[in-house]
Simulated assay, not measured.
Amino acid sequence: MARTLKRTAAFAALGRALTAGARGGPSLGKRLGALPRMIRATARGEYDGGLRLALMAAATAYVVSPIDVVPEAFLLLFGLADDALMVTWLAGSVLSETERFLAWEAARPTVVPGHVVR
């Protein structure tokens, strides 16, 4: 049940992102620009997206790996449907996680490094 909800949330995020321009949400460019910052913040331990980033990396590796050629070689329709589902999930997950990251980033207090002068 929880897996179905997560998949549903990823697909819903994809739908929201595709219509974000009309509703005033973050643009696709802002979301993609947030990816390097999200990875950096996760690597530093500031942001809690480690598992989600690992799942997205695994999905990307699966789609581009030679292992993925096996379903296409024997079951063409299943192999292509498998890729389409994985890419759609990956796109929805990236959009959902970047939306979450941008909200987290906006809620953080901004601190300018420097010295206090009295």
Rank of each mutant, 00 (worst) to 15 (best):
A58T: 02
A22W: 09
F101Q: 02
A2I: 11
R40F: 14
V111W: 04
Y47G: 08
V94N: 04
V69S: 10
L51V: 10
A106P: 09
G25C: 08
L14Y: 12
A20R: 08
T110N: 07
S27N: 00
G45H: 05
E46Y: 00
R40V: 14
A84S: 14
A43C: 10
A9S: 12
P26I: 02
T4F: 04
L55R: 04
S65T: 01
V70H: 13
L55H: 05
S93V: 00
T42H: 08
G29C: 03
A58P: 03
K30V: 08
V70T: 12
S96D: 14
T42R: 01
A58F: 04
G21N: 00
G29Q: 12
R118T: 03
L51S: 09
L76Q: 09
L90S: 05
A9D: 07
E97G: 03
L32M: 08
L14H: 13
V112C: 00
R118I: 06
V64R: 11
S93M: 10
L32A: 05
L32K: 00
V63S: 07
A20M: 01
V64G: 13
T8N: 10
L102F: 02
V64C: 15
L90Y: 04
I39V: 08
K30S: 15
T19W: 12
A73Y: 15
K6T: 15
A12T: 05
A2W: 10
L85S: 02
L18K: 07
A107G: 13
G114K: 10
K6G: 06
V94C: 06
E99R: 07
G33M: 06
M1Q: 00
V69Y: 02
R16Q: 11
E97L: 07
G45F: 03
L53C: 09
A13N: 14
S96G: 11
D48C: 07
L75E: 01
A41L: 09
L28S: 09
M56N: 15
A34D: 09
E99N: 15
T8W: 15
T110Y: 01
A9T: 04
L80W: 03
A59P: 06
L35A: 10
P113M: 13
T88D: 12
F101M: 13
T4Q: 01
P36H: 05
P36Y: 10
G15M: 10
T19G: 04
M56P: 03
P26T: 12
L51C: 04
A73C: 10
S65L: 05
L53P: 08
T110R: 13
Y47H: 08
D83Y: 00
G49S: 03
M38R: 06
A43G: 01
R7C: 11
T110M: 03
M56I: 08
A91M: 14
R37V: 05
R31H: 13
F74M: 10
V70W: 15
A10V: 00
K6M: 09
T98V: 05
L55D: 10
F78K: 02
E97Q: 08
D83I: 06
R52E: 11
R37Q: 13
G50Q: 04
V94P: 03
H115P: 08
A41Y: 03
A12W: 00
V111C: 04
G25Q: 09
L77I: 14
G21Y: 01
P71G: 09
